[in-house]
Design a protein around this nucleic acid. Structure first.
Lengths: 230, 230
DNA sequence: AGCACGATTCGGCCCCGGCCGAACAGTCGG
DNA sequence: CCGACTGTTCGGCCGGGGCCGAATCGTGCT
């Protein structure tokens, strides 16, 4: 009779399917997967996966980001991850032995890390925010590099060829839900990571593949960038 | 492919039905309901409810206690309640504004309180344990009052007529999952509450209907009882 | 013993939903 | 413009499962 039973059951119904659960479990690594990757991973036809994914998005468990002919999917937020972990605990399984749990626990991963081939973590997010605040990037209706930004990237040697005609977008807003903030992806994001390593802003940490340590020079570089804008 | 997806989906499937969810929600008050009560409450036939209830018990969400021709059902534990609350939070609903949440938070309710018409809370549980340890109650295969116990209850004026032919059992083990322990229910439990109030062991608290405050006399009475047994 | 009552089982109905393959729509690259 | 590739929509198939009513069992009361 109470309304809550209806909606709660409907919500649980979304998680009441192996394929959909498998999708969510795969996404527990916090990264964005493409639809075919997920379809192949759970072992169903692309058409079937498509329906599941729209259902998960409509239910608010996933967010999608369409890019070209691809559709990238991520968990909607840390709260849904918590629900899934809670369910996993209820059936007595450890759902996430993966990088994510460590990412939250390990402060070394929290400060700075790679996300695929670009910069993430608190420092990566801060750098992205600074570039945005300084007008080097603009996020009005799709992320683009401004003229000023293009000069700055070029000066640092971090600008790939303007017509480096790959399929990959030049810049991309990459949502990392452990931070619940965006950082810079795409070609330029990758180039920026290389520059950060080359300039000694960050350095890799032995034994922790994705971890980065921010050096004094790195903190200084970010501070300089912020100071130059004000 | 991973086993966890299968079992997790099956678990979610148990909660993917309005009727079953409505049952769990009703049981969130922490008390035991009878099967027909639940059937009537969620608005399905008794036969349908019976199947749902066995499913919930088999899934480990509920525990049952058969007594005479009745079947009492309760939530299996605080952990399942937490899962349900988590799910409720995920759909943006407050599942339990009820007494339970307060019972956990409010130390006054935690120390001693009424559960229906008998004693619960830490002090109620301790009293029950003491009666059991002192051989006044025996729990081997169904709770019964021993001869020694019968004398003790009679001495305190807490013994209802031996053939007070109501339908209610004389003693009953009542499982309170906020304590995760049993306390004394049934006719004798109710009589014991009256005696505890009459003897000044506990007194009611203004403004908190179910709350009881344990007096010095109450603590003393329990200590005396424990001392007499050793 | 007989009756009342709570609970369970069984057969049957019906609808929901997961699955696939085929066809279609967009996008990217030559 | 023409392939190559990603995703989506649409029939159609089929199994699962929620629901009920009737019959049955077991318990308790008189």
């Amino acid at each position: 009779m109470p309304l809550s039973a209806e909606s709660l059951a409907r919500f649980a119904g979304v998680l009441a399917d192996r394929s959909r659960v498998a999708v969510c479990l795969a996404l527990m690594d916090g990264r964005a997967w493409t639809a075919t990757e997920l379809a192949h991973h759970v072992g169903v036809a692309r058409s079937t996966a498509s329906e599941h994914l729209t259902a998960l998005v409509r239910a608010g468990l996933l967010v999608e980001r369409r890019q070209g002919r691809s559709r990238y999917l991520q968990l909607a937020g840390a709260d849904v991850a918590a629900v899934i972990e809670g369910l996993g605990a209820a059936v007595g399984e450890r759902v996430v032995p993966s990088s994510l749990r460590r990412a939250r626990a390990d402060t070394r991963l929290a400060e700075a890390r790679t996300c695929y081939d670009h910069l993430a973590g608190r420092w990566g997010v801060a750098l992205y925010d600074t570039l945005l605040a300084g007008g080097r990037l603009s996020a009005d209706g799709g992320l683009v590099v401004t003229q000023e930004g293009r000069r700055w990237f070029a000066a640092g040697g971090a600008l790939p060829g303007p017509a480096s005609g790959g399929r990959r977008p030049e810049v991309r807003e990459c949502l990392d839900w452990t931070e619940r903030r965006s950082h810079l992806g795409g070609q330029l994001g990758a180039a920026l990571l290389l520059r950060a390593l080359a300039s000694g802003w960050v350095q890799r940490v032995d034994g922790l593949p994705r971890a980065l340590q921010v050096t004094e020079a790195g903190h200084q570089a970010l501070a300089d960038l912020q100071a130059a804008d004000s």
